[in-house]
């Protein structure tokens, strides 16, 4: 079990050793003997098994099965309201599954071991141990207005990972430099443009050294001229690290550049999935064709 405060356990992006990963995967495997067969469960970083999410009478995700391989970069596309963002929010534990289970790195994530059936819904303590491997960047940035830029980036490393303030600040500066905002450390979030705020949000998420990065329409709230700067930063990160990435975006050019796989999503189902070239050039479904011609 990873301790909450020992920074030594964190070894950077994709941080765990193979041995640790194997151990986690095997343990997870034993717990998921009732889940449907899939191609390569051992290698899956994220696994959705028969996930259903309902809000009242409205079914947003309907028995969804899908997986992300370690280091894979996947983009979700599809019409608004099709449930793409809900997938990210379930992974970030901002929502709870109605049915089904989610595994992360072979370990149960939406649920934890216990009870008669072997799994019970995860409690806050269990989630806190696992959630920190996942980072998220939001459509509306969601920077903390009560903290300066650098404090936004160092807050969680200090208070969750247990880094010293100096160490966190040093890393924070590096990350802000990476996103081109080294000179804005002492600014208030409100003093920044939307594009700058979003780049701070990216640095803030990376400061937690996540294994998985979730990007939720990160350019949708930006003025058109600010989009490129944010996408450039993300492109750099995607190509220079082995972070597993799951993006929801309407930027098809970006999706094509960074994705290993694109998934077309509609009405709570994956309509089709494939490498970007294949999906963009020769989509199988009429629905996909219609959607692409509408957005491209």
């Amino acid at each position: 079990m990873l301790s909450d405060t020992d920074p030594k356990e964190e070894t950077g992006p994709g941080g765990h050793t193979e041995a640790v990963d194997d151990a986690l995967t095997n343990k997870g495997d034993a717990l998921r003997n009732d889940s449907p067969a899939n191609d390569s469960p051992v290698a899956d970083m994220v696994r959705f098994d028969q996930v259903v999410k309902r809000f009242g009478d409205h079914t947003v995700l309907d028995q969804l099965d899908f997986g992300l391989r370690r280091g894979e970069r996947v983009t979700l596309i599809g019409p608004s309201g099709s449930g793409k963002t809900t997938i990210l929010r379930l992974l970030m534990t901002l929502e709870r599954v109605t049915e089904g289970t989610i595994h992360v790195d072979g370990e149960p994530f939406s649920h934890m071991p216990g009870g008669r059936d072997g799994l019970v819904p995860a409690n806050e303590k269990y989630l806190r141990e696992r959630r920190r491997r996942i980072g998220m960047v939001f459509q509306q940035f969601n920077l903390f207005p009560n903290m300066k830029v650098l404090e936004n980036v160092t807050e969680a490393p200090v208070h969750v990972l247990g880094l010293s303030r100096d160490e966190a600040a040093e890393r924070g500066r590096e990350l802000l430099d990476l996103v081109g905002l080294a000179d804005k450390c002492d600014a208030h979030p409100t003093q920044l443009s939307g594009g700058q705020q979003q780049r701070v949000a990216i640095a803030r998420a990376l400061a937690m050294r996540p294994d998985i990065l979730l990007l939720d329409e990160v350019t949708s709230a930006l003025d058109p001229e600010l989009v490129a700067g944010v996408l450039d930063v993300l492109r750099d990160i995607a190509l220079s690290t082995d972070i597993t990435m799951l993006c929801v975006t309407h930027e098809m050019g970006f999706a094509r550049d960074v994705s290993d796989r694109v998934m077309m999503f509609d009405h709570g189902h994956v309509l089709e999935a494939g490498p970007p070239d294949q999906l963009f050039e020769a989509p199988e479904h009429t629905r996909t064709r219609e959607f692409l011609s509408a957005v491209l």
Binding site: L94, H159, V160
Partner: peptide
């Protein structure tokens, strides 16, 4: 609500969320 969510995404504990993010605002 988004401020709570951002704090969850950074894995702050419920107490830290309240003390460091929500209350100051």
């Amino acid at each position: 609500q988004a401020q709570w969510e951002a704090a969850v995404a950074l894995n702050l504990s419920p107490w830290q969320r309240m003390r460091r993010v929500i209350l100051p605002q």
